[in-house]
Amino acid sequence: MEDAARILQLVVNGAASGCIYGLIALGFVLIYKATELVNFAQGDIMMLGGFVAFSLITHFHLPYWVGGLLAIVITAAFGYVLDAFVIRRVIGQPQFAVVMLTLGLGFIFRAAAGITWGYDSVGFDTPFTNKTVNIHGLVLGEDNLSIIVGTVLLCGVLYLFFSKTRVGVAMQAASQNQLAAYYMGIPVRTIFSLIWAISAGVACLAGILLSPVSMIDVNMGFLGIKAFAAAVIGGFGSIPGSLIGGVIVGIVEQFAGYKLPAGFQEVTSNVVLLLMLFIRPQGLFAERMGKRV
């Protein structure tokens, strides 16, 4: 019984950190589906979002919910501006130019955050910090549960947004066929910038949800590398896939930390990623596509 509780606890913790990876991966996938670009600065945008929320809540004394929501809006606006003024300029250049561009942007964000907020870890009080739920002897942190609940809620919101609203449907159209969408009168450029905004907002949410579990610091953007594993497992083009991939990575990581000697936990996501690329590169939920010249 003791062991089963332990395993269940590992699963919940893993699922929680996996949801964070999944949320970052969701950001990659949204942008990739629409523009075929991969944003290597996604983790750093999450870091920026976390710091903005920290500033709003700690320095401006806003309540958690208001501050968090405002931080998401600010980060989303930042994502819009980033696409409209920087990323759009390299459309049509080779794909790796965008990889390097976003990597360079990541370095700039990290330095900017370090200059603005310092290099120490910070945190802010949330309604979930240091609280636990006790279910028949199974002790779970509310912070971990809040991540899972928040992710599920976000998925619902995104699903409704993409299937029910005009803008959401326009985004789907623009992702599927730019030219056709353009002919139908969809402002494709604005739509792409909006997708960057959503992706940045999701990253910010991930940062806020993560803050009670691990502190916010300048280097938290390196989580983005683990999120690649999540996105690849999900097939790099599937939104539910990226979340499931994130949860898989998170749980595998927890068990690796439990069973394997110290230090191996950090590389498990990379090993999983490489194994996935070797065995089933199209991911678990790949869209079937033919090759056309």
Partner: peptide
Amino acid sequence: SLFGLVLV
């Protein structure tokens, strides 16, 4: 950050 800036 300078490396990043130059790259960009």
